[in-house]
Design a protein around this nucleic acid. Structure first.
Length: 768
RNA sequence: GGGCGCGUAGCUCAGUGGGAGAGCACUUCGUUGACAUCGAAGGGGUCGCUGGUUCAAUCCCAGCCGCGCCCACCA
């Protein structure tokens, strides 16, 4: 044996042999009548590459899967990738631009989608190769994709996922749980699509609060308090023929249709029911009393732009204010051809000059005009939080459009109950609170996206706009014929669905649903879902909602998609910052693997996977655990040099030397400690038990104290010690294998030819 | 505003109602017999602060200080 393990050279070869031997196939090493144990991988984006978070997530899953596999369970670790609608579309659009090719609009929808499929087929294998490098023992023969079977999918991309998505959409539509509605949504003006609330990030920004004077209509005026005594009572007033409103977004003023004041705000009480006039536009703005207006904020009078503000939209509905959209999908001013904008008023040339300007240019221009014309009352500096699209990083625009919504409130009920009743348990349990809090306050889920890469909404419209939601165009045509009494031309809805709509079906869809497959019957529900907390809402909650709604037992009771949810920490840079390319503090797991070996990196991540919120990764630890694997290697080398070979029929209970009896007991204790830790998802406890035993017990004491016996004159003691050492080492290779699969597998082959690879041998049964 | 987490050695982090720990870094010594990717020995911490419960608190409780995250708020 060499003095060290050459991880870089050995690991890929070991992985190839595992795969070739069928070690990772569903049910490999399962005992007769074994219970099933299934984990579905959180599907990485198909164009993505392995980052350190994936490395942690998949290492933990692999530890559990290899452990259960060795224990003789019927194990399935289901692999696959997510089509990642908006992210992938973005990647391809950037690639097109970088290559100097025509953009997606010039290409047209069909050609663009073909191009994305091509990208998927070219780069989709990248992450699979990287997961192999990590040692992840997924059953690759079952690799799934969230867009499989979609129309236009090239050869080799067949599958059931598109059917699953259509089935869910159509059934929910017919049950009234999916509906179309015109309401304000978060609009991403870069991708020109609606996004869900979850895809919006609040970003604190320095900004300004502008105060504008809106003249009162019909020559009206009122007395505004300007001086106050110690009790806050007004002592002086001034006569004003205007109302001051404050705004952080001047550009929206062209869409104003009212001004709200609080019903008990005596300053403005006399104005309620009268009108103000919108500068530049001349539109009459109803002054309404509404609880939403906060007398303490701004000037207490708040301009109402129902088409461009979520709160204003609600007030507008209550108070009967019109909603006037003044922006294009790219958030430029839309005025000239906008009949709503012109309705009942005559905008000035200054207003019309804003036509086509970007929202921020329009803002600057408006403030300029306000100042020049004397209706700018003042400016305050302020920081406020501004919602941004999580992909485009652009400020999202509340935008009034027709979109498809899922009645999440109804679906949430069973998903909440399942966790309340313990059908699914979170580890650590504290995450259940987060889960409940979100689901109990859930808003309708906007699932339509104005993108091209994704599952197209299965709805066709008749000439009068009547919607027919069916699995196929033919079925929609038949439904239309029944509705109209004759054939009518139908037009399909252009929208695609939110990526999370399909990934929410992952546990069912990967097992063949809506088909009634043997795998679905066998492996659903899964044993545990291993995930980071950042996608509890995006993904876990959606899988719970869909799983509970569509999977029922004979009694009609919801069957949850997984029994346990293990929520692990997020990996951060050593300084605690989020790893990001722009900051340049990204640690590439593949670099760590190249330098220290996959085993060392895996062991590091596992040893730090305590149930906290985040892990600050120190690379020095990786080196430390690489040394640990070398230590193990050399203990085996010691065994080889001393002719310690496994003895057929060796009975650990029968050894007589005190030293050997002692290590047998320690081995049992170690096995129990590892099992107990993994049962409780205390990965770091398992890792430290193994580390402490192998280094501090087996090497420091047992190996040292075995030397006199191995070189002594007592042949019986020598032989027993040789056999015991070989046995004790084998037990440690097995116990370490889920954590450090490569070096343990390599050592497993060393002393003797073995009938089976370590990955599919049995877990030690020795007790303490 | 609502919720959650963290604060232990120089750094990155475990941990427990009774003895304060690991890796890395540091100091000294040790290289023909498993291992220098090593071994032996060692220095270094009032376990954020204050109060309470307890025979006993780093751990449990309350408050405070500091840091961070999630959700809600574009007047």
């Amino acid at each position: 044996m060499d003095k060290t393990f050459d991880a870089a050279a050995a690991e890929p070869d070991l992985y190839a042999r595992w795969e070739a031997s069928g070690c990772f196939a569903a049910g490999a090493n399962a005992r007769d009548g074994a219970e099933t144990y299934c984990i579905v991988i959180p599907p990485p984006n198909v164009t993505g590459s392995l980052h350190i978070g994936h490395a942690l997530n998949n290492t933990l899953q692999d530890v559990l899967i290899r452990w259960k596999r060795m224990q003789g369970f019927d194990v399935l670790w289901q692999p696959g990738q997510d089509h990642a609608g908006i992210a992938t579309q973005m990647v391809v659009e950037r690639a097109l631009a970088a290559e100097g090719n025509a953009g997606r609009r010039e290409m047209g929808r069909d050609a663009f989608v073909r191009r994305v499929w091509q990208q998927k087929q070219e780069s989709g294998g990248t992450i699979i190769g990287q997961l192999r490098r990590l040692g992840a023992s997924l059953d690759w023969s079952r690799n799934a994709f969230t867009m499989s079977g979609a129309p236009g999918a090239p050869e080799g991309e067949e599958g059931n996922f598109h059917d699953a998505v259509l089935r869910v959409f159509v059934e929910l539509y017919k049950a009234g749980l999916i509906y179309r509605d015109k309401r304000l949504v978060n609009w991403d003006p870069v991708f020109e699509t609606a996004i869900s609330d979850l895809e919006v990030e609040q970003v604190e920004e320095k900004g300004k609060l502008w105060r504008f004077r809106y003249p009162l209509a019909d020559g009206a005026s009122y007395e505004h308090p300007v001086e106050f005594d110690e009790d806050g009572e007004a002592t002086a007033w001034e006569t004003r023929d205007y109302l001051v409103v404050a705004t952080t977004r001047p550009e929206t003023m062209l869409g104003d249709t009212g001004v709200a004041v609080h019903p008990e705000d005596h300053r403005y009480a006399g104005l309620v029911g009268t009108d103000a006039i919108l500068p530049l536009v001349g539109r009459r703005l109803k002054i309404v009393a509404d609880d939403y207006a906060d007398p303490e904020k701004g000037t207490g009078a708040v301009k109402m732009t129902p088409a461009h503000d979520f709160n204003d939209f609600e007030v507008g509905k209550r108070q009967g204010l019109r909603s006037i959209n003044i922006m294009t999908p790219r958030a430029a001013m839309f005025l000239q051809e906008n009949a709503d904008f012109h309705f009942g008023c005559e905008p000035t040339p200054e207003a019309m000059a804003l036509e086509g300007l970007d929202r921020y240019e329009a803002r600057a221009k408006l403030v300029e005009v306000a100042e020049a014309q004397g209706w700018l009352d003042g400016i305050d500096e302020e920081t406020h939080v501004v919602p941004h699209g999580d992909r485009s990083k652009a400020a999202v625009e509340p935008y009034l459009t027709d979109q498809w919504f899922v009645d999440a409130k109804t679906l949430a009920k069973e998903a909440i109950a399942a966790v309340r009743e313990g059908e699914t348990v979170f580890h650590p349990k504290s995450w259940e609170k987060t889960y409940f809090q979100w689901l109990e306050n859930i808003e309708p889920w906007c699932v339509s996206r104005q993108l091209w890469w994704g599952h197209q909404v299965p709805v066709w419209y008749g000439p009068d706009g009547h919607a027919f939601c069916e699995m196929t165009e033919a079925a929609a045509a038949a439904a239309a014929r029944a509705h109209y009494g004759e054939d009518r031309p139908l037009k399909r809805d252009e929208d695609v669905l939110d990526t999370w709509f399909s990934s929410g079906l992952w546990p069912m869809g990967t097992l063949g649903w809506p088909g009634e497959t043997p795998e679905l019957a066998r492996y659903y529900p899964g044993g545990v879902l291993v995930t980071g907390f950042d996608i509890i809402f995006f993904w876990v909650a959606r899988m719970m909602m869909f799983g509970c709604h569509f999977m029922k037992d004979e009694a009609g009771k919801p069957v949850v998609p997984f029994k346990d949810v293990y929520v692990h920490a997020l990996v951060r840079a050593e300084d605690g910052k989020k790893m990001s390319k722009s900051v340049g503090n990204v640690i590439d797991p593949l670099d760590l693997i190249d330098e220290y070996g996959a085993d060392a990196m895996r062991f590091t991540l596992v040893s730090m996977a305590a149930m906290g919120r985040d892990i600050k990764l120190a690379t020095s630890r990786v080196a430390g655990y690489r040394n640990f694997s070398t230590k193990l290697w050399n203990a085996a080398r010691f065994g080889e040099l001393n002719e310690c070979k496994p003895v057929e029929g060796f009975d650990p209970a029968a050894v007589s030397q005190p030293l050997n009896r002692w290590i047998v007991g320690e081995t049992g204790r170690l096995r129990a400690a590892v099992d107990a830790a993994l049962e409780a998802y205390r990965f770091n406890d398992a890792a430290s038990a193994l580390y402490g035993d192998v280094w501090g017990v087996f090497c420091d004491w047992y190996v040292e104290l075995s030397k006199p016996l191995l070189s002594g004159d007592d042949a019986a003691a020598r032989d027993e010690t040789r056999a015991t050492l070989a046995w004790a080492l084998d037990a440690r290779l097995k116990l370490l294998h889920p954590f450090m699969p490569f070096v343990t597998e390599a050592l497993w082959e060393q002393p003797a030819a073995r009938p089976a690879m370590l990955a599919v041998t049995d877990w030690p049964e020795i007790g303490p």
